[in-house]
Simulated assay, not measured.
Amino acid sequence: MASTPTKPEGNGTKPQLSQRELDVVAKAWTCINDVKNGVPTIDSKKLAEMGPYASADSARHIWKPIERKLLAIAGVTPTPATGKGRKRKTDTADGETPDTPTKKPRARKNTKAATKKNEEEDGDLVDGEA
């Protein structure tokens, strides 16, 4: 089964939904939680139970590409998700670039050759050696 494109084609046609995708849309319609900015949010747990899908995560992965197609058909461009990651400071208050801490270099592993060399230099005998 060939998948349908998620983006409009070069000739201006809009993406089409397959029969399977239409079935998922019908199930998702009953799982609408809320509508934000004109876009419905789907309860993934409920969709997983109706699907039947193994988990809410798998139901969400099934729904997202279909949602993108529906938005493309409607001509709506979704707003990108805003990241909640930490923001890095590039300049300090006085305009200087902050000093970034450097990573401590790794210590070298002792190899047999290095261990023998250290023993020869020390001249000490280990207990039990003659």
Rank of each mutant, 00 (worst) to 15 (best):
P98I: 04
T6F: 02
G51Q: 08
V76G: 02
I42M: 01
N33D: 09
L125S: 11
L71P: 07
G85K: 06
S18L: 05
Q19I: 15
D43W: 02
L71D: 06
I73Q: 10
K27I: 08
G123W: 04
T82I: 14
L17A: 02
E9Q: 10
A48R: 00
A107K: 15
V39G: 00
M1N: 06
P101L: 11
E120V: 14
A81E: 12
A114D: 09
E21C: 07
H61V: 13
T82K: 12
I73E: 03
D91S: 13
A2N: 02
A2T: 00
E96C: 01
T92R: 04
S18G: 13
S18E: 04
D23I: 08
K109Y: 01
A81L: 15
T102C: 05
D127S: 11
D124H: 05
E121P: 03
T92G: 12
T82H: 12
V39I: 15
N110L: 15
E67C: 09
E49A: 10
T90M: 11
K46R: 08
R108T: 13
K109P: 05
R68S: 11
K87N: 08
N37W: 03
L47V: 06
A48P: 01
E121M: 11
R68D: 11
V25Y: 06
S44Y: 06
I73S: 03
V25K: 10
A48S: 10
E96N: 09
L125V: 12
R108F: 05
K89Y: 12
H61S: 10
P5L: 07
T102W: 13
A54Q: 10
W29P: 00
L17K: 04
T41C: 06
P78Y: 02
E121V: 11
A130P: 15
P5K: 00
G10Y: 10
M50G: 01
P8F: 01
P101K: 04
K36M: 01
L17S: 03
D127V: 13
D91Q: 11
K104T: 14
I42R: 00
A130E: 15
K64M: 14
I42K: 00
K27A: 07
E21F: 01
A56Q: 09
D127N: 08
P40W: 03
K84H: 14
K112D: 14
R20F: 11
D57V: 15
T111K: 00
R60M: 10
W29G: 07
T4F: 14
P105M: 04
D91R: 06
K69A: 03
T30Y: 05
I32C: 03
A26C: 06
T111M: 05
D91A: 14
G85T: 06
T97L: 07
N110C: 14
Y53F: 15
R88D: 08
